[in-house]
Design a protein around this nucleic acid. Structure first.
Lengths: 199, 199
DNA sequence: ACGAAATTTAAACACAAGTTCAAAAAATAA
DNA sequence: TTATTTTTTGAACTTGTGTTTAAATTTCGT
């Protein structure tokens, strides 16, 4: 019955979340204003409160949405039949494409500064941990199959994700190199870090 | 004569800048308040204005100070007689030590969002470019001497600095691994990315 | 110790941004 | 069309924070 209404509301929520994500990534948590989020959609800030309890709630759900997209991407890679090398390459490329095009990543909530409730914070941290864990699994698999040399998995994962996440700091849509080129280069250089030296 | 007074004033400015840098790194630009900076020094926010024109001026000079420390560190490395490998290792370790102990890096002003004047912004960007350039020089030197394999220097530098800068997002003073251990690991893994494969 | 200069304070002000709300407008069902 | 429900609006309220300022306090040379 009212599923039509419900759908419409859900769609509007999505729009708002997308707009919020864009501002969030560009301006950071403190710099994101309800007004700017609304303005992008030709709405007034007051009407945001019809869809979300408050700013924190909005930005929290924004994080959930972003993380969900990321997780969907890497889970597809994990479940594929690719070799560890190709899995890692895919995961890296996927991450970069998301970070540059979709322009949203877990960056904004880097440090747990926000006024998120403890429950919200734990949820976001949990999703992030799950994402990191998938990278660890790929690396482990590679080591087991002896296509990657034995390394401190956590350290290498931190290096990789650090390098990837930093891209948003300098990436420019109109810059000389496309996201595609960047991701190719990043994947090959980062993989080299893990390659066994064939004598 | 009054150089005593001047010195005292300079010292106080330094203290304020240090306090500001700490808050800045932790809270980000928008999250940094004059009150918090002052509170750390048992001062009132009003007295900050005796030393700095306004918040922007303070945070701008804060950036200059941070960049100067970074540049001093890497210039010492550049001018040394170390091999390219050791130079890069030193630069990486120096950067990590600064980022974790001194806890200040160019992070905070990542994207040019702020209300900095155009002149201030250009100055900060210029210093940052200089810092990046030193890394490029080391990598180039290694390639020329054939201890590093030929790579896209800019890309590799972005990967390295990205990985390093991201450390502040997760580093915890009381965590299991010391900054020293982290820097050792990072240096060795990142260098592997550049090593020529000896057949 | 005295007076001038330097420094700090606390209160006041301005303004931006999150939030609330009653009324208006739009959408929908009858 | 009319009545009811949903959605949007715009203004008002609140709070936090940057900034100013006059007065109080401290510092320091003589």
């Amino acid at each position: 019955m009212s599923s039509f209404r419900a759908q419409k509301m859900a769609k509007k929520k999505q729009e708002i979340l997308r707009s919020a994500a864009a501002v969030l990534v560009e301006k950071g948590y403190q710099g994101t204003t309800m007004e700017e989020i609304a303005a992008k959609l030709l709405m007034t800030k007051g009407s945001m409160y019809y869809y979300f309890k408050n700013k924190d709630d909005l930005l929290y759900q924004c994080h959930l949405m972003i993380m969900e997209i990321c997780l969907d991407g890497i889970e597809e890679v994990i479940d594929s039949n690719l070799t560890p090398v190709e899995k890692l390459r895919s995961a890296i490329k996927e991450h970069i494409l998301l970070a540059t095009s979709e322009k949203s990543m877990f960056m904004a909530l880097s440090k747990p500064n926000h006024s998120f409730s403890e429950k919200q914070l734990q949820e976001v941290l949990e999703l992030r941990k799950r994402y990191s864990h998938y990278f660890d699994r790929i690396i482990h698999e590679g080591i087991d199959k002896q296509v990657f040399c034995p390394v401190d998995v956590k350290m290498v994962r931190l290096i990789i994700l650090g390098a990837l996440n930093w891209i948003q700091e300098w990436y420019d849509q109109n810059g000389p190199q496309s996201a595609e080129e960047i991701s190719e280069a990043y994947a090959s250089y980062l993989l080299k870090m893990l390659m066994v030296v064939k004598g």
